[in-house]
């Protein structure tokens, strides 16, 4: 598998600003057009995803939020790859809506669902506010996201609550998954909660009850020097099948 270092992959990620600006500061300095080179997201989509994930998981005094942890890169890579194309998703019709407890029943792949929804959102926000989502105040962004979450809007065939839940889950996944997948940059999320990462063996420690244990987390994709190699084409199949 091709690997490139996190550094070279993301050196143009201007939007992923360093530092720990508070949530309010960030929103009052709206994220403008991203300079991150995405695989799949277009400029309008990035212009929604970046500020949206910054509201879902904001940076605060404890550390980076989803935007700073490069969760937009995670989402981009997932949607660009096999997962976005519907790998492991049962896709035979007939398509009909059931009860929520029967699970997802739309004909869209994840990539289709995101593309349709974000196109509709871009149009909707421009029509209503005359500016892009990124230029809204933090409060207005939150209100818009809450409206999506509440459902009722039709986003190109996608009920807005379904899109919102997909976006929120992707954001949380990208924040907490191994940085191999492009998010959780510098293992920032793991550091904030104290999760030690992929290298995990606690035979000696498990019965040291209540021990305070802090170790720099370790990624499955790090080499001996600590450089993390992002999986450009994230495999969903098992390791054996990828070899």
């Amino acid at each position: 598998m091709d690997t490139i270092s996190r550094r070279s992959f993301l050196k143009a990620a201007g939007a992923a600003a360093a530092g720990l600006a508070t949530a309010c500061d960030r929103a009052s300095r709206p994220v403008t057009a991203s300079r991150t080179q995405y695989s799949w997201l277009n400029v309008d989509e990035a212009g929604f995803i970046e500020p949206a994930i910054a509201r879902l998981v904001p940076a605060d005094e404890s550390g980076p939020g989803a935007l700073e942890a490069n969760v937009a890169v995670y989402i981009d890579l997932q949607l660009a790859g096999a997962w976005g194309a519907g790998e492991r998703l049962y896709r035979s019709g007939p398509w009909q809506q059931g009860k929520p407890t029967q699970g997802y029943q739309l004909p869209f792949t994840p990539a289709e669902l995101f593309r349709n929804s974000m196109r509709a959102i871009t149009d909707d926000v421009r029509k209503t506010n005359q500016v892009s989502f990124a230029k809204l105040t933090a409060a207005d962004q939150d209100a818009y996201l809450k409206a999506l979450e509440g459902g009722g809007k039709d986003l190109g065939g996608v009920p807005s609550n379904i899109f919102f839940q997909s976006l929120l889950e992707m954001t949380i996944e990208g924040f907490f998954s191994d940085p191999a997948y492009g998010g959780n940059k510098d293992m920032a999320a793991w550091k904030q909660i104290g999760f030690p990462g992929a290298y995990a063996n606690y035979y000696d420690l498990v019965d040291k009850h209540g021990i305070e244990f802090r170790r720099p987390p370790m990624s499955l994709a790090q080499d001996a020097s600590g450089t993390i190699h992002i999986h450009v084409e994230p495999p969903a199949q098992s390791a054996a099948k990828g070899r």
Binding site: S177, D178, P235
Partner: peptide, 9 residues
């Protein structure tokens, strides 16, 4: 390991 310890996958 370490590939097996991949929560996402």
């Amino acid at each position: 390991g370490p590939h097996m310890h991949d929560e996402l996958r």
